[in-house]
Amino acid sequence: MKKLNDFLSKNAQGDLISWQAQIQAAEEFGLSLHDVEKAILTLNLLPARYQRNRQTISTADQLKLFESKVAVIGCGGLGGYIIEELSRLGVGTIKAIDPDVFEEHNLNRQVLCRVSNLGKSKARAAEVRVHEINPAVKVIPIKDAFSRQNGLKLLEGINIVADALDNVPTRIDLARICEFLEIPLVHGTIGGWYGQVTTQWPGEGTIQKIYRDCAETKGVERTLGNPAFTPAVIASLEVAEICKALLDQGTSLRQRMLFINMLDMEIDEIQIC
């Protein structure tokens, strides 16, 4: 460990460690890039890839993000962008859960979907993509549907959950399990020009309140579908909520939901108490 620390200190430019030095350290000391990143941040040095995070996220906060485990439930429209942004942000461990494979109708909006991976697992595509962007991030791909039966096990050890599901009943199951495990849940959902975001904190039952009068499996997306821009907007708002919750900064969308109408460009804040 001392040798690794000496190597890193010697190779720091200012307090930055280049990607090349990170790779070299991993090879020289037989460690994973994940382990080396932890050592860098623990020394209060910063992997150079995060230097533009800096005025927003301190090195100490970057370490907090690195030590965080985030579960993303669904790797489709919302989930793809959420996973992309979490990995660029430097969240250390991402559990990517989705039972499906890519189909042609996903190409209009799902950032993980490419012509070359049609028919392939969405969860696996998340792992491949993150490895291309930030190999220091650990991805745990789960090609299975989140359910009441496996939920407790899937969310074991997770700090916060991103809702990127495509139906109401599973979302309610997820919200109940997050309540039980006392894990915050960042909720996002989309349909056509519209989307909504909120964060359910333990004990607040926000998601059940939102859907208490909804007997349907789907919402307006059943008829409107989902264009390219809606998931990108809502996913980004979800990631901002996740980042703040992990760093205990700013003001969460707690007991309030943003309802976003991109057709008329209106954002309404709704109290969910």
């Binding site: 429209g77 495509d166 109401v168 959902t189 349909g191 909804c214 789907k218 919402g219 307006v220 709704i270």
Partner: peptide, 8 residues
């Protein structure tokens, strides 16, 4: 009055 939104 709001409609339900449920997609992802």
């Amino acid at each position: 009055l709001f409609p339900p939104v449920g997609g992802g």
